[in-house]
């Protein structure tokens, strides 16, 4: 019997033909994100449009310049750059200068995708690579949050800062629910978290709309349900156990799930098929890892929010998870006794 090569990681047959194409999936994702996007514009006004547009144009331009001319048409039309740009934009604070958002888009596509060999070859979620770069580069601007303005014409002067500069950040800065929890042990009512009228990044404020979008993706079959379910359940159980120990210090499970970027990350970023394990067992492991890491970082780490690092760390582990959870090849023994 011929020994199968453990170096070669291939999904075993049967492999089915499917009508689903990359542009089709991306279109679904964009549709699923549209309620959140519209809500972010509703809440934060013009500044949301400027930040999102800057991210998307940074991503698209980088994709255009670093793609061989012969492939440009196909790659630009598959919409994956657009999705990355939009996802990145939704994780940014509303008053971020547009040039920083643009730079984030460039880094997300350049260092998050192109450099690994393009769509499908990247190890890390490109949008989160862009966000990690921005957070490490401009910690000040990236951690200054504003309360939702309620007026469409709201445009903080910092959003339009000239490249390489930063105008005085808006004076009416608000603390995020997680920041309040971490540094002042102060909770936020659940309804506010659920509907989204809190300070935070563009797309993370409204839990309701994120769940609506994700439900659409689930119905279309574009998403592995195990990952979001696993992440949210783990986070709830873990933080529930902690809050049983000491409810004054540790947040409740519902707060943990609906605050910060956990829903956005769990529903739209961890489920990126390129950077998550494709086997069912692998997906569970991956999700549990993220859930535990998020709560660990939030509760015991120095930062108020840990969704980004949790997902990036598990992205790095996913090839390994994939290797250990390969299904047994039909016709082979359980033990590899060739």
């Amino acid at each position: 019997m011929q020994k199968h090569d453990p170096q070669l990681l291939l999904q075993h047959s049967p492999i089915l033909r499917h009508d689903k194409t990359t542009p089709g999936v991306m279109l679904d994702v964009l549709l699923a994100l549209s309620p959140v996007t519209i809500a972010s514009i509703w809440l934060f006004g013009l500044s949301a449009i400027v930040v999102l547009a800057a991210c998307i144009s940074g991503a698209a331009l980088t994709e255009y310049f670093f793609t061989p001319t012969s492939k440009r048409r196909r790659i630009l039309l598959d919409g994956s750059g657009l999705t990355t740009g939009l996802l990145l934009g939704l994780t940014l604070p509303p008053a971020l200068p547009a040039w920083m958002a643009f730079l984030g888009g460039v880094v997300a596509i350049g260092l998050g995708k192109i450099i690994w060999g393009g769509l499908g070859s990247n190890l890390f979620n490109p949008a989160l690579v862009g966000r990690a770069f921005l957070l490490a580069t401009f910690p000040n601007a990236m951690t200054t949050w504003v309360e939702p303005a309620g007026s469409f014409w709201n445009l903080p002067s910092s959003t339009l800062s000239l490249p390489f500069t930063l105008d005085e950040l808006d004076a009416v800065s608000g603390a995020t629910p997680l920041g309040l929890m971490k540094f002042e042990q102060q909770g936020t009512p659940f309804l506010e978290l659920f509907l989204g009228n809190t300070a935070g990044s563009l797309g993370e404020t409204s839990g309701l709309l994120l769940i609506l979008g994700a439900a659409y993706l689930l119905l279309r079959g574009d998403m592995d349900w195990r990952i979001p379910v696993g992440i949210l359940l783990t986070a709830m159980l873990f933080s529930g156990a902690l809050s049983l120990v000491d409810p004054t210090v540790y947040p409740t499970p519902l707060f943990s799930v609906f605050s910060g970027g956990l829903l956005l990350g769990a529903l739209f970023m961890a489920t990126d098929p390129v950077t998550s394990p494709s086997t069912p067992t692998g997906a569970w492991l991956f999700a549990i890892g993220i859930g535990v890491l998020v709560i660990l970082i939030r509760v015991f780490g120095g930062l108020p929010e840990g969704v980004m690092y949790a997902i990036l760390l598990m992205n790095a582990a996913s090839p390994l998870i994939e290797r250990f959870t390969q299904p047994r090849v039909f016709g082979y023994d359980r033990e590899d006794s060739s």
């Binding site: 580069t137 401009f138 910690p139 800062s161 500069t165 930063l166 105008d167």
Partner: peptide, 16 residues
């Protein structure tokens, strides 16, 4: 080299 408005790229002086 630049005015006081310049926003430094903190990551550049860190190891990454």
């Amino acid at each position: 080299l630049f005015g006081t408005q310049f926003e430094p790229w903190v990551i550049m002086i860190l190891p990454p």
